[in-house]
Write a protein that binds this DNA or RNA. Structure first.
Lengths: 366, 366
DNA sequence: AGCCCAACTGTAAGCGCATACAGTTGTGCC
DNA sequence: GGCACAACTGTATGCGCTTACAGTTGGGCT
């Protein structure tokens, strides 16, 4: 029965072919089809060819579900992080306005970016490492209400789950952890039994603060992040450690929220300008730079500014931002590594990996 | 048989509980367990409570594999995009240098970012839309050699696949498309039968070029992207269309590669400075701005510069970059929408959605 | 020629769930 | 009190694959 290629080529996926279909066409058993796909060397070449021909001809793609069920593992790793709030187009209807081009003028007064580069970088690291190790990567962001459903859903789909600190309620995490290994990112180990991967927040902040103090500055402002952030807490500790070792330092502590807008707001409101503003993250520091630019206050001459994170935008800001670079991509990779290590050996002790950071001196505090 | 909670709570996942375990504990059939999870209202409240208690007590999380197999759909959508080349730590060993903080000075001569924000944005849009519609999102980047394996792998795991143009060989895509719907991003429809989602490249570039010409500029340089990019081709068309409608315009066309480094290189090498440099994307334009800064050539007074994409970095560059904003997040969302539309109705005609763009006037070409 | 063993290949039993269909129970009504 | 029917619940099957185990084949030996 000869079939013209085109005939089946544009068939509208009447029914996805299965091992049975392939086996029938190749005149072998389904076991042989499975072998050709999983362990080609265990099949005679001639048989293998017949099977592969059938695979190609039928457009066969094995079902990962069936495979996962039979093999008892999915080969997928999940990454869960705090959600980008769904601001854009809340009703979700897109209009195809083909031919539509509008022109607007952006005078820099509009809403600043809300985007957090941090997660992109972590995600990139995770993606690279996961596929390198033969795992697919599934991503999910925390949506307020449906968080539990999503976490449960993803937990049933993966062999292991990496979660950003504070994005999943402890109880839910504990529930999930009974089924698959969980690694927590950006938090050092507390009393829980999970693996952790974090960066050297306190020593990093301490080092950059010491650098600031080494310039002779004594009147400092510290713009912190949200109180429930473990990262923020550690950074503040590092800052205090540095400050406490030097006499005659005055500190004004302001609570920010890690955002650029808030950094700008705060900096616009400063009356008695300090000699240096140490920010808990880069976004905040960039907001401060925005404000100083607007107020025509020279950085670093009138006030020095430092950040923390090492996001790309800081390399191109005006002035270029002095900061502590944390290895975000490595963080993602390390999470996957920790997870695969535990999958290989579930009996491993819970580990807590702390990645090194780097103080990067640029123009905002030379 | 009473069991103290703690006993099982810290069990090291001896074996993930299944519906059978839950059913046994709740003294119901597995069908009822399944109903409680999928369709709670179809079960008497009292029974439901017993089941939920068992779920909680046992730490039960349903297997998506088994569910997907039985239900014949995975509820996962895949996103495939060109890979970030795996540059960092090629051997993959991480050293936990806890306590390690190094200090470096960054004088802006080092390697510029290689990172492409474009994909991050698209990914974000896809992620939002997928989960909103009840699909999980699986991401994969194209790795040179193993591309075929990865695409096949992911194809077996998802109900639909979104692919960035030119990242997957046609033949492979055709193979996959016989099993699941495929939508191609950032390319208008050619001869294939896939759904497409793209942006209004040509009209957008035409509009911004017209704006440049409206300032009176007549000697232009155009820095294009790689030749095999459909986006680039369309933008160049738009540029030409604008230029052709005005007399006395001279154009020098240079071939770039969409990267910031290359943009800088090219701009550093310019001898006869044009009145305006129109770039095929923002990264290139930012590189040009870098170069002009270094050469102390004033933008826009001595030369105007425009980009295309609307990445966040352009909002904060010096000077702020005039560009064409393309809705990257919307692109990702639209891809998911197209996919779900086709899943709902496989008989749909292949559609080609073109999203509108927006010319954003900022300081580099006011 | 007969035997043994290596190299293949086939058979069959699940993996954990959804669901059609077949009970079972409880309620309102005559 | 008995019947019809609604509201639940249980039984049984199959989704598409992996894999232990049981054939089958053929070549090298004696």
């Amino acid at each position: 029965m000869q079939t013209r290629g085109t005939r089946e080529d544009d068939a509208i996926m009447a029914k996805a072919p299965t091992v049975y279909d392939v086996a029938e066409r190749a005149r072998v058993s389904i076991a042989s089809v499975s072998r050709v796909l999983r362990n080609p060397d265990s099949v005679k070449e001639q048989t293998r060819e017949r099977v592969l021909e059938a695979v190609r001809h039928l457009g066969y793609v094995p079902s990962a579900n069936a495979r996962g069920l039979a093999a008892r593992r999915t080969n997928v790793i999940g990454l869960f992080f705090p959600g980008h709030d769904d601001v854009t187009g809340s009703d979700g209807r897109l209009v195809a306005a083909s031919g539509g081009v509008t022109v607007v003028r952006d005078d820099a007064t509009g809403d600043p970016e809300t985007h957090n580069y941090y997660f992109d970088e972590v995600l990139r690291g995770a993606e690279i490492e996961a596929w390198r190790r033969g795992f697919a990567l599934m991503v999910a962001a925390g949506r307020g209400a449906s968080r539990e459903a999503i976490v449960n859903d993803i937990a049933g789909r993966v062999d292991g789950l990496a979660v950003l600190a504070r994005t999943v309620p402890d109880e839910l995490l504990a529930h999930v952890a009974r089924r698959i290994p969980v690694v927590v990112l950006a938090a050092t180990r507390g009393t829980d039994e999970f693996d952790h991967v974090s960066v050297n927040n306190a020593p990093g902040m301490q080092a950059i603060t010491e650098h600031v103090l080494s310039t002779g500055a004594r009147r400092l402002m510290y713009i912190a992040g949200p109180e429930d952030s473990p990262d923020d807490r550690e950074r503040l500790e590092g800052f205090r450690a540095a400050v406490d070792r030097v006499d005659g330092v005055t500190v004004e502590l302001v609570r920010g929220d890690f955002s650029r807008v808030r950094g700008r707001e705060i900096a616009l409101g400063i009356e008695a300008m300090p000699e240096a503003i140490v920010c808990a993250n880069d976004q905040t520091a960039l907001g401060v730079l925005d404000a100083m630019g607007r107020r025509s206050i020279s950085v670093p001459d009138d006030v020095m500014v430092t950040g923390f994170d090492g996001i790309a935008a800081g390399r191109h800001s005006t002035p270029r931002l002095t900061t502590v670079h944390q290895p975000m991509v490595e963080l993602g990779r390390a999470a996957i590594q920790a997870l695969t290590a535990r999958l290989d050996d579930p009996a491993l002790d819970a580990q807590s990996l702390v990645l090194p950071v780097q103080v990067v001196l640029r123009d905002s505090c030379p």
